[in-house]
Design a protein around this nucleic acid. Sequence first.
DNA 1: CTGAAAGCGCTTACAG
DNA 2: CTGAAAGCGCTTACAG
Lengths: 352, 352
Amino acid sequence: MGVKAAIGPAPARKITSVDVARLAGVHQSTVSRAFSDDGSVAAETRARVLAAARRLGYTPNAIARSLITNQSNIVGVVMAGISSPFQPYVLEKFLQALQERGRQALVFSAPPGQEIDDILPAVLQYRVDGLIITSATLSSARLEDCARAGTPVILFNRNVPGGGASAVCCDNVEGGRLVANLLLDAGHRRLAYIAGSANSSTNRDREKGFTDRLYERGIVGTLREQGRYSYESGYEAARRLLERDDPPDAIFCASDIIALGALDLARERGVRVPDDLSIVGFDDIPMARWSAYALTTIRQPVDAMIAATLALLQERRAAPDAPPVTKLFPGALVERGSARRASGEAGGPVGG
Amino acid sequence: MGVKAAIGPAPARKITSVDVARLAGVHQSTVSRAFSDDGSVAAETRARVLAAARRLGYTPNAIARSLITNQSNIVGVVMAGISSPFQPYVLEKFLQALQERGRQALVFSAPPGQEIDDILPAVLQYRVDGLIITSATLSSARLEDCARAGTPVILFNRNVPGGGASAVCCDNVEGGRLVANLLLDAGHRRLAYIAGSANSSTNRDREKGFTDRLYERGIVGTLREQGRYSYESGYEAARRLLERDDPPDAIFCASDIIALGALDLARERGVRVPDDLSIVGFDDIPMARWSAYALTTIRQPVDAMIAATLALLQERRAAPDAPPVTKLFPGALVERGSARRASGEAGGPVGG
DNA sequence: CTGAAAGCGCTTACAG
DNA sequence: CTGAAAGCGCTTACAG
């Protein structure tokens, strides 16, 4: 009533369910029930509680709830580098899917290409309900820590057979085969592969599918350049390839971002795409459809893969000791302008 | 000892500090101290506790800690769309900065251009220590909810004077002026502006700085196309501009991604950049330096802006009722190949 | 349908 | 330096 009151309303910090209960004239446990879906509360009581809560600006404390229910509703998402365009594309979809399901995402970024063991303790401290690791791997020691903590782990876009973790992945081997078929059917015989980071399963599998199919169809002597998953890397690798005495007439790049770099280098040197050189990527990132690139590529069915990841996480939480599974999703060939069409192919629907 | 033992080690779910205390032969509070930095524990005791913890695979429960310390160590990050390339670039830097400071990030993605009021309750339930909102705004009602909950809010890359929230922002008005000067000094007189989303402060400020400076220097009749922050939008807007009877010879785009679309459209139509047309963007996203684009642009000092955001958050947590402040950071002109150089300018260092 | 009480796993004065 | 105890803000059997 004195001078102090004039300073302004004392900010009533830290409103709890007890405050709401007092105002609504009920017990604290009733407040709790009013905020839970299945709590049996008289409709009228609930209305009174909710009104009091609104007046006080009360929101249930999810931290306290997590502690007692032993469920945080938080999923950990660890990404190895968000800078490569496929990653934010995936992350955004994960965030949306999680939000739709009423879950939160604690997101971590790891230096690309590295193991993410250092990050794990922080993730586990927050007792996340599950852990999604995209484009990275966890050592088996850390994987065991997760198992011991009862935290299910799903590897997204990384497939380590026998690695002890469940995985959701595009069928990269089959994708590589698809590209080999496409290029061979278009008449190419002088082929090259620009690899992504050496230690990634995506690179390994895409390369394997590609070269195996080439071999099956009698092609040998395919060129190879080691790259990383970056534009600059594709640009440089393509330079080395095109400076050869016997340059390739078709290049399969381990990912779209590599292909974009290769495409730009080719153009700069006056090599016409696809007339002189076919270039194919993998992922179908948003940029692949830019008219400047019109990249022929393999599309990963990201939405289905994300839904499967979340379903698997749920499943594993119920049955933590079930053996790891791997779910493979077929990629789809998207033909745009950067690769020659099969020679036998008709010009359009009319010709069919 | 019976059949059950053969099934395997019963997974000792939910190890707590009590379990560790028992194994180490100390009280539970001593375990807690051993895991805290300043807790006074005998070195030998701490070692024993840590050994026991390792053996049991114990990690302190951060959820329980948050409840008692009233500090979650979690920062909420709300982004309006991660798909535009500047956003993941910023997000990655935020995540890294937060990790370095021992903090976690609860990340939310909102539909771009929209208000993010719906997301706020979820954020507040988790009692985040602070909230960073990038490229989006909160209604004043929701801002008040945050104030009442004692959660400091910083707007990143959005500047709403008198909006009631603190903000960290590039000086977009000054950036717009810089571009006007550059283009005028290079001899351009027929100018155009491709706008970003109409309701964004970034667009408003960049346009204002640009047109004000043009006006000051006596240029009128500047063309304007409304766009959104997307490649496609820049592509289409540039088409409309270049199909005119009196096309511009220089275009300032509200952001780099718009400029990239404009650049590609120009090329497709055989318009030479920068000989026939200068194009300037804003942000300096990683793609701007790709050799295919070599985009002249304004670089936002993102690292400094992020450090300031985090410092401000810390500050506001200590003094929640301090009035909102806005920190403006100057952008830097980065001249690459997409805009003509000033006519008076020497060709290189030799000519100086 | 509602109240009273126990308990989730920690931290932190308070003694000694 | 260590132990004993209170308490953070909830949920959830248990009675009634």
